[in-house]
Design a protein around this nucleic acid. Structure first.
Length: 266
DNA sequence: AATGGGACCTGCGCGC
DNA sequence: TGCGCGCAGGTCCCAT
């Protein structure tokens, strides 16, 4: 579910909400989401610590703790963080010393919580490619030239660029007028530039509107993200292209639903 | 190296 | 009304 804009939204709100607070206790309702050898170590390891800061790396949230360790949270498809929560219908709840709860909810149980000594050592973090906002047009163009995979599949590869997911890949490609099945290395310089620009613009706009709530994702306070209103292709199969009226097509690429306009995207 | 499939899970909407 | 199927914003792992 959540891609860069959604995770960034939660990160910003979380920073306001919990930095400086002390964790008094952890309620584990479903230990499956805790990727620790022993869930008890997770519980004991967090008790009494306070929150120093909140970071985002790609789609991963990192909550820095007062003893130098960190709580890494990946929301995967249906994870949610809600604050203040109620300690109910959550997989895991964190109780702060002021009595408020932060709830981790996750319908599908793909989400992962992990207490680590050094988040930079996580294999997942080490494998992440650059953040889209850190890329220059020249660098992006060079990266594309080295790849023969389909551009849409490549954008979803977190070791290539981090933070883009299925929804924003579709939106950015539409805006750049590039067909999702094009080989990355075949993009002309102008197309590569347009694509990077549209990636950055789409992500920025989505952050501005606090993300896209298709189904599960919500902001920290439980409200939905409003960017759905601005989607041009994602989930719109059969509906007219907003530019040329041609029905939006849905194909499967790498097992993911892929939406595009067969006329506008070359 | 790229691509395709399945796995991990739950729950929704659709057609019959 | 009920059932089976396909689908879902992510990632990992295996086979070809």
């Amino acid at each position: 579910m959540p891609e860069l804009p959604e995770v960034e939204t939660v990160k910003r709100e979380l920073t306001q909400a919990i930095v400086g607070k002390k964790i008094d206790g952890v309620i584990i309702n479903n230990a499956k989401v805790i990727r620790q050898n022993n869930p008890k170590d997770f519980l004991e390891g967090l008790k009494g610590l306070s929150v120093k800061g909140v970071l985002r790396k790609g789609k991963l949230l990192i909550i820095e703790l007062s003893n130098g360790k960190a709580l890494a949270i990946h929301l995967k498809m249906t994870g949610q963080l809600v604050y203040p929560g109620d300690g109910l219908k959550s997989r895991v709840s964190f109780k702060f010393s002021d009595g408020k709860f932060m709830d981790f909810r996750d319908q599908r149980l793909f989400g992962e919580l992990c207490l680590v000594s050094n988040w930079k050592d996580l294999k997942f973090v080490k494998a992440l490619g650059p953040e889209p906002f850190d890329l220059t047009q020249d660098k992006f163009r060079q990266m594309l030239l080295e790849k023969n995979s389909k551009i849409k599949t490549l954008l979803l590869d977190q070791s290539f660029v981090s933070g883009i997911g299925n929804l924003y890949a579709a939106e950015a490609l539409f805006r750049a007028k590039i067909h999702p099945e094009r080989k990355a290395s075949s993009l002309a310089e102008k197309e590569a530039s347009a694509l990077l620009k549209e990636i950055k613009d789409t992500l920025s706009e989505a952050i501005k509107y606090k993300g896209s709530s298709i189904d599960q994702y919500v902001q920290l306070d439980g409200q939905r993200g409003e960017y759905v209103k601005f989607h041009k292709v994602y989930g719109r199969q059969g509906k007219p292209c907003l530019i040329c009226k041609m029905p939006i097509k849905r194909i499967s690429l790498g097992g993911r639903g892929t939406y595009f306009c067969p006329r506008c995207q070359k």
